[in-house]
């Protein structure tokens, strides 16, 4: 029955479209000069959309999937330049016993976590205080400036400010907060602090812009209603604005978090993992394994592990956040 009905319908459809085509051909002989309609086979018609998106898909595959798969494949070998010898999961078993790997993971979590929390808090606080400001409304885009600098340039600026140029030491001394030059790479926490400061400086604007946009987008009448109900600005923020912004916050912070876990440029330029590996992030660990020690297979295995960890953590956070937001 159903099949018959379908057949019937497609027949009448075909009939209709034939009619239409005839009509069109009659009605527009002049147009026919420009659009020569060669009869296309059904298969060719079906392929057409794929042809259109094909190049983009190939491009994406080439720059993301291929290297990814290559790394996964390579992680199963011990690679000494052109010599690949099968190792199975050997690289992985070595990694989980590698103290430096775990240290790098911990450093990434500490530096990234602190940096991300600071950015979120600063961005939200500043956004809360100035989202009704007419200047911020009109010109919020200029707050993106730090993001527009090249990351390596930013890293060099902060390297100069902290270490080589001693700008910050001088500043602290003139404020009487330090008695002599601070050697920022001498202590674990000072070195980590320099990385955090640099990252916060460059990336807080990203969150700020998103938060300000979300706050500006909320219904002004709701705020007015809350004012009349007796709410202070801060209780409006905690009771209404913040809960309503929750999905936006989760997405923005997750994006930023994923980005932070791959922190490399600042480490490479400012600290090189010193002192004693206390600032060695996962990306830097992988870089060191691959391009300093030429353990390509080992580096690939670390990358794959890092990818898995990031996916699992991000997925859990997003899922949790959205679930509890609904109930």
């Amino acid at each position: 029955m159903l099949v018959a009905a379908r057949l019937c319908r497609s027949k009448s459809m075909a009939h209709l479209s034939q009619k239409l085509e005839k009509g069109a051909a009659k009605a527009a002989p002049a147009a026919a000069v420009y659009s020569v309609r060669r009869p296309r086979s059904a298969a060719a018609k079906k392929m057409f959309p794929y042809l259109l998106v094909g190049p983009a898909v190939l491009y994406l595959l080439a720059i993301t999937l291929y290297p990814g798969l290559f790394a996964m494949y390579q992680s199963l070998f011990v690679v000494k330049f052109v010599n690949w010898s099968w190792a199975g999961l050997g690289n992985y078993t070595r990694i989980v016993q590698d103290r430096e790997f775990w240290a790098a993971l911990g450093n990434t979590a500490i530096i990234g976590g602190l940096s991300l929390s600071l950015q979120t808090i600063i961005a939200m606080t500043v956004a809360f205080f100035c989202y009704r400001d007419p200047f911020v409304r009109g010109w919020r885009i200029i707050f993106l400036m730090p993001m527009l600098f090249m990351p390596s340039a930013v890293a060099f600026i902060w390297k100069l400010a902290f270490n080589d140029g001693r700008v910050i030491s001088d500043l602290l001394m003139s404020l009487g907060l330090a008695s002599n030059n601070v050697d920022w790479l001498s202590s674990v926490w000072l070195a980590r602090l320099t990385l955090i400061v640099a990252d916060v400086w460059q990336w807080t604007p990203f969150l700020f812009i998103i938060f300000v946009g979300a706050l500006q987008g909320q219904d002004e009448e709701i705020e007015e209603a809350a004012r009349l109900d007796g709410a202070s600005w801060s209780s409006i923020f905690w009771n209404i604005s913040l809960p309503m912004m929750r999905p936006i916050i989760v997405v923005a912070v997750t994006l930023r978090g994923i980005d932070i876990t791959t922190m490399f440029t600042n480490v490479y330029i400012m600290t090189q993992g010193t002192p004693g590996g206390a600032t060695e992030t996962m990306s830097y660990f992988i870089y060191r394994q691959g391009f300093r020690m030429f353990n390509f297979g080992y580096a690939s295995a670390a990358s794959v592990l890092m990818l898995l960890i990031t996916i699992v953590v991000a997925q859990t956070i997003v899922k949790r956040a959205f679930k509890s937001g609904k109930s």
Partner: peptide, 11 residues
């Protein structure tokens, strides 16, 4: 005040 557009708190 009862607002013309209700202004209820959606969350």
């Amino acid at each position: 005040m009862v607002f013309q557009g209700y202004a209820l708190y959606p969350n």
